[in-house]
């Protein structure tokens, strides 16, 4: 007889309920959502049903009458579930600006790494975390308040298949510690840095990463207008605000230092970041974790 239960994701004060069936399902949902806040104080916005059977490679995800995934690729199922949760959490969100971004935390505050898919933000986030920064997210943050603090959507680090070789250059992992498929991999962020605590640090620095194969490493300060224009490209709940929240976004762009980082390799990146931002990127290691 299967054991069953429910998991409630409470990011952005929402309640997303995921019914799981069997220990494989429970383990997967804890792997994917275990670092997200829990909320059962209001009625669930959406209810999902998750069934995972590793032995027979059977994975299904449904939402009421809709079948969202049915197949043999656990990564695809996990990817679909995370995207559903994110969508449900931000689709009507008016309390905070939702930005598509990676984020890490140093002792000096939160560093935001906004970017579209393919910009290299997840890989850069993973690399920074492997160098001692605290992980916040590789996907989405809420910026709340006039001196904004970062509310991270903390999930496993998710990388496309093309980034796997790079990832292996700085993280040791095996199949058991990841959810992998032909399309990509989700990896526990604690493998890169086991010192994790949930924090909502103040926003201190914005860096737009841009992976360009074969390029030299370049770090360029950009002004508020250009920074705001680029933030707007990563801004996912604009339509929930009367003026699209642009004035709030512009306020953030005016008060936060913004840079563009072009890179192709991690070999010289550490030195470049350390030179550009000594207050954030002084020498760190797994034994020198920012508090």
């Amino acid at each position: 007889m299967h054991n069953t239960g429910s998991f409630h994701v409470g990011f952005a004060e929402q309640n997303i309920k995921i019914n799981w069936q069997g220990s494989d399902s429970r383990e997967l949902i804890e792997f994917l959502c275990g670092d997200l806040p829990n909320n059962t104080s209001n009625n669930p916005r959406s209810v999902y049903d998750l069934e995972v059977d590793y032995a027979h490679s059977r994975f299904t995800l449904g939402c009421e009458e809709r079948r969202l995934y049915c197949g043999d690729d656990c990564y695809e199922l996990a990817y679909a579930l995370i995207n559903e949760i994110i969508y449900q959490c931000i689709v009507d969100l008016k309390d905070g600006l939702a930005i598509h971004a990676g984020a890490v935390h140093s002792g000096q505050g939160g560093i935001l790494l906004p970017g579209k898919s393919g910009s290299g933000k997840s890989t850069l986030t993973a690399w920074l975390v492997s160098r001692g920064w605290r992980y916040l997210t590789d996907e989405l943050v809420l910026l709340q308040g006039t001196n904004p603090k970062i509310i991270p959507f903390t999930r496993p680090v998710s990388l496309k298949a093309g980034s796997l070789k790079v990832l292996k250059s700085f993280v040791d992992f095996n199949k058991e510690s990841a959810v992998a498929g032909p399309g990509g991999i989700m990896l526990a962020h604690r493998l890169m840095n086991p010192h994790f605590i949930q924090v909502t640090p103040p926003l201190a620095l914005i860096i737009f990463p841009q992976y360009v194969a074969g390029s030299m490493t370049e770090i360029t300060r950009i002004g508020g207008a250009l920074g705001c224009a680029q933030l707007m490209e990563c801004y996912v709940n604009a339509r929930n605000f009367k003026d699209h929240g642009v004035e709030r976004l512009a306020g953030i762009a005016r008060t936060t230092p913004i840079y563009r980082l072009k890179y192709s390799s991690f070999d010289v990146l550490y030195e470049a970041l350390n030179n550009a931002f000594p207050e954030f990127f002084h020498e760190r290691s797994q034994n020198n974790i920012p508090s």
């Binding site: 508020g224 207008a225 250009l226 705001c228 224009a229 490209e233 004035e247 512009a250």
Partner: peptide, 18 residues
């Protein structure tokens, strides 16, 4: 939207910034 020495144009219909 005016910044120190820079200008941002944006649409109110789809939040596109220039």
């Amino acid at each position: 939207e005016e910044f120190d020495n820079e200008i941002l144009l944006y649409t109110v219909s789809n939040a596109t910034g220039i």
